[in-house]
Design a protein around this nucleic acid. Structure first.
Lengths: 94, 94
DNA sequence: AAAATTAGGTTTATAATGTAAACCATTTTA
DNA sequence: TAAAATGGTTTACATTATAAACCTAATTTT
């Protein structure tokens, strides 16, 4: 039995933290994710794009009053990918 | 509570697989590790160097008959680092 | 006994990735 | 009305991962 591949999109500290956050909530705002993960805004913006392009999260941009508001939520595909990642990872750490 | 840092030296698929292998055995030979992980020799060579330089594994080079033989084993420091990594990681995946 | 192949690696060039710094538009504060 | 803050995005750079090329010695083939 050899080691399963770990989805490279999830095997990134920041992206994994984002997914970990999102899997527990309905949705979360950019600023909230930024604070919880301790990421810089720039880095977070890039990584959210990657997760979004992969279909792992959905990102909607609107306004809170007159300020931009970016809201994220995990998708079904994202949940599946996260679960698979965790299962594969367990092979490495158990 | 924010997310703990994941040791970047261990947060690499191949290096994690190597550590995962080594934590269960006394020692392992280069070719064995290569086969178990599915890595190319070049990549494995580089990653073993990194783990070795960090003091996470010890690497001894000798000869089996007249062929070179590279043997690896995990160190105490390596075990500790691996355990810490696993503990921190659990925060992300549970 | 050359020549080719295999074994066991290492070196290095390139591609991919991660990240912070710089930037932009708007809004609030002094 | 400047200056600073908010909420991001873009982009340039540094780091990392990886495969391809290479090396030395030992076998095997012709």
């Amino acid at each position: 039995m050899s080691f399963a591949q770990l989805d490279p999109l999830l095997h990134s500290q920041l992206r994994l933290a984002v997914m970990s956050l999102l899997i527990g909530v309905d949705s979360a705002e950019f600023v909230f994710i930024k604070e919880k993960t301790g990421a810089t805004a720039g880095n977070l913006s890039v990584q959210l794009d990657k997760l979004s392009n992969a279909g792992y999260i959905s990102v909607t941009k609107s306004f809170k009053g007159k300020k931009p508001l970016t809201t994220c939520s995990i998708t079904k595909v994202g949940i599946k990918a996260f679960e698979d990642y965790v299962n594969n990872l367990k092979q490495y750490i158990e």
